[in-house]
């Protein structure tokens, strides 16, 4: 936390401030397996995508979840948002339990929101920004019609988009702007926890930083709790209070991002750190695929 860049207080004067503080997010022994192959060919087997994962994210902080593609990190995001049903385990938001098999508590979707990786795919192309952002408010009956209109305009300016953006379609924006729309849409239902599923991976490097800064500013202003999923340790290191490294559905290492980056203990983490390109050519080592590296180390 101390190493994070100073958070600007741009939104300090906004109405947004502190009117809904973030809550703790806790995941206990989450398990999810998928059937692979087809039964008719007699090859069906189950693969554990998430294998006994536990996480605790204190209110108003950011937990990074890092792993290669296929490591199960996106499955965890979907399990937390109940887009998938876990085989077993618990998800708790502010003490509200969402246990496998039980009915989802009412209003859960309001508490936990998700921002997807690719804003091109996550925004309905047939809707204008105004409707996209207002949808959540309408579904949960949060505000009256006129209040909704005001709120939507407020959210759009909060994420740094001009007012005329409201009457445009998603395809009229750049990737970074679209991700801003997706963030505004997630914030519209006044969530306490925001699951960020690789929110900058689909964006240009120059735009990545802008979106991360926006997310930091929003957190500073509102105290939201973040679970940031990434495959890039460098993104996580700058942004998170704590980092968990996931490999094949299991958390292999967790702790302070600085320490994990400078002194990784688990061979998989070491491989991840080394796989990241080094800007200085003199310090660069030969690129080896993270998985191979991990095997060699073992």
């Amino acid at each position: 936390m101390s190493e994070n860049p100073p958070r600007t207080e741009l939104m300090g004067s906004s109405e947004f401030t502190n009117h809904h503080l973030g809550r703790t997010l806790e995941v206990r022994n989450l398990v999810k397996s998928f059937k692979v192959g087809s039964e008719s060919f007699g090859k069906a087997e189950r693969i554990k995508a998430v294998d006994d994962v536990s996480l605790f994210v204190p209110a108003g902080t950011t937990m990074g979840l890092v792993g290669e593609s296929g490591s199960g990190k996106s499955t965890i995001a979907r399990l937390i948002c109940r887009l998938l049903e876990p085989d077993s385990g618990q998800v708790l938001v502010d003490g509200d339990e969402v246990t496998a098999g039980t009915k989802i508590p009412k209003g859960y979707a309001r508490k936990v929101q998700i921002v997807f990786q690719d804003p091109t795919a996550s925004l309905n192309p047939r809707w204008k920004v105004r409707r996209l952002v207002a949808e959540g408010i309408r579904v949960h009956g949060l505000r009256s019609r006129s209040e909704t209109k005001e709120r939507v305009a407020e959210l759009v300016s909060l994420v740094g988009l001009p007012e005329h953006a409201l009457d445009r379609y998603p395809h009229e924006f750049s990737g970074g702007q679209r991700q801003r729309i997706a963030i505004a849409r997630a914030l519209a239902v006044e969530p306490e926890v925001l699951v960020l599923d690789e929110p900058v991976s689909a964006l240009d490097v120059s735009v990545q930083a802008q979106i991360l800064v926006l997310l930091q500013e929003l957190q500073a202003a509102s105290g939201l709790t973040y679970l940031l999923i990434a495959h890039d340790l460098a993104v996580v290191e700058r942004f998170c209070d704590e980092v968990a490294v996931i490999e094949s559905g299991r958390i292999v290492e967790a702790g302070d991002p600085e320490i994990i980056h400078s002194r990784p203990e688990h061979p998989y983490t070491k491989a991840l750190v080394e796989a990241h390109p080094v800007p200085d050519p003199h310090e660069r080592t030969m690129y080896v695929h993270a998985q191979d590296k991990a095997e060699v180390a073992e």
Binding site: R78, C81, L83, G107, Y108, A109, R110, V112, Q113, I114, F116, Q117, D118, A121, S122, L123, N124, E135, G136, V139, H140, A182, R185, V189
Partner: peptide
């Protein structure tokens, strides 16, 4: 299979 279908579900639709 587009993300925005899941986005609707996540929004509580």
């Amino acid at each position: 299979h587009q993300d925005f279908m899941d986005a609707y579900r996540a929004r509580g639709l």
